Amino acid sequence: MNVFLEQTPYFWVIGGILLLALEFLIPGTFVMFLGIGAIITGITSRLFPMEITTQIILWMGTSLSSILLGGQIVKKLFRSESSVDPFVKDDFLGQIVPVEVDILVGQLGGKVKFQGTVWDAVSEKERIPKGTMVRILSRDNLTFTVETVSLD
């Protein structure tokens, strides 16, 4: 058993390197942090001989620390571009679309077809019958506010 304990630091380092390599196959950086914890555990257990149970606890602690600390570093290095609104802004304004279901004044129930999808629609001024062409004025969540257009 003593021979095994003398070799465990090398197993930790080799395992850590394998986990780092595995990161290329499993994206997400999680496996990389486990590998970093294993390498730190291998180096530490080589410098300060310890029982396997202590090594496992050390690996869990260093992996958790590297996940927490490394996660913050990765977030700062690779900033994601996000916006509050997941839709492309204002690509719908002014578009002329057909009415699929009669649109009521200030009430949900009406529908328009925009980019191959049927959307809820309301009117602020008048009831608009099916088949009429309307202009999109604004969007509130998944509901368009529309007005009739004359195609003269």
Rank of each mutant, 00 (worst) to 15 (best):
R79M: 10
I17K: 07
T41E: 10
R46V: 04
Q72L: 13
W59Y: 11
V149S: 01
L20F: 13
K76D: 03
W12L: 09
T148H: 04
F87H: 08
F114T: 07
I56F: 09
M50G: 03
F30A: 01
I26P: 00
M50L: 13
G37V: 06
K111G: 00
I39F: 05
L68D: 06
F78C: 05
I136P: 00
L20K: 03
A38L: 04
V149L: 09
R135L: 09
L5H: 11
V134N: 00
R127L: 08
V122R: 15
T62D: 05
F4K: 01
K111Y: 01
V99E: 08
Q115N: 13
V149Y: 04
M50W: 06
L47K: 03
L19Q: 03
G110Y: 01
P9S: 11
D91M: 08
E51Y: 07
V97Q: 02
Q72P: 02
W59K: 02
A121F: 02
S45A: 08
F92H: 08
T8I: 15
L104D: 10
I67P: 00
L108Y: 05
R127W: 04
R46Y: 14
S80H: 12
T54F: 09
G106L: 00
T143L: 08
G131Q: 02
P9D: 13
E126T: 14
V97H: 00
E124Y: 01
V13P: 02
F48I: 15
L77H: 09
T132R: 09
P129H: 05
G61K: 03
W119G: 05
L93T: 11
L64V: 12
I39T: 11
K76W: 12
I17R: 08
F48W: 15
W119A: 09
G131V: 06
F92T: 03
E126K: 10
E124Q: 10
M1C: 04
G116P: 01
A121K: 06
V149P: 01
F11R: 09
G131R: 02
F33W: 15
V88K: 12
T117G: 02
E100N: 08
M133E: 14
L34I: 11
P9I: 10
D152I: 10
G106P: 00
K113S: 13
Q115I: 10
D140C: 05
L18C: 12
